[in-house]
């Protein structure tokens, strides 16, 4: 990423990233074996260490911290959306006629790899949307939406994506990122403008 100056990771950040990666890998290893025993944990640690040495992970800047209550709110809403989306697509499948769709650009307010990835992942699973393309330079997601009928629904959907982003940032974002969302919601800067220079 050339256009976006990224603060170099301090050795403390890097240690934390490695600790998170090792914890995740060991958890998966223990779940695969299915029983919690010291032998599993220790062999998991060995496997995780080898993996991290052989396949070093690309650096992810995780500036925020995890907040349990907004995270729970995000998860509950996510599950609800997943059910609604599935029923909606299932209904479109059996209903007569061909479904209309649209490709919509949504400029996210927080342009970090983590936020872009999480929003795109969540978005692909919730009502009628699928990521076609992501523009990292401007932090824009291009979303294919199915079952849409008119331009007013396009705007409603764009608004929905930005709400989803706000929920994700509230759950895992940094204080500075939360401020940016709050500031933006106080005085909306016109979500449709896309031609502007990357911030």
């Amino acid at each position: 990423m050339t256009s976006q100056p990224k603060a170099p990771l301090t050795s403390r950040d890097r240690r934390r990233n490695r600790a998170v990666a090792v914890t995740g890998l060991v958890t998966v290893w223990v779940l695969l074996w299915g029983t919690f025993s010291w032998a599993n944990v220790i062999s998991g640690l060995v496997v995780a260490a080898v993996l991290l040495v052989v396949f070093p992970l690309p650096p992810v800047t995780f500036a925020g911290r995890i907040r349990p209550v907004p995270l729970l709110r995000f998860l509950v809403r996510f599950l609800r959306d997943l059910v609604v989306a599935s029923v909606q697509v299932a209904w479109l499948a059996v209903r007569p006629g061909e479904p209309h769709s649209a490709i919509i650009a949504v400029r996210l307010r927080v342009n970090t790899d983590l936020n872009l990835t999480l929003t795109a992942e969540a978005l692909s699973l919730v009502p009628g949307s699928l990521i076609v393309e992501a523009d990292r330079r401007t932090g824009t997601l291009y979303v294919h939406v199915i079952g849409i009928r008119g331009l007013d629904e396009v705007e409603r959907f764009r608004h929905g994506v930005r709400e989803l982003e706000a929920r994700i940032v509230a759950a895992v974002g940094s204080a500075e990122e939360r401020d940016r969302i709050r500031h933006d919601e106080a005085e909306p800067s016109g979500s449709a403008e896309l031609e502007g220079a990357p911030t």
Partner: peptide, 13 residues
């Protein structure tokens, strides 16, 4: 199927 697309905001980018 472009005839089924209501809008395509990606085409220009």
């Amino acid at each position: 199927r472009r005839d089924l697309l209501i809008t395509d905001e990606l085409a220009g980018h």
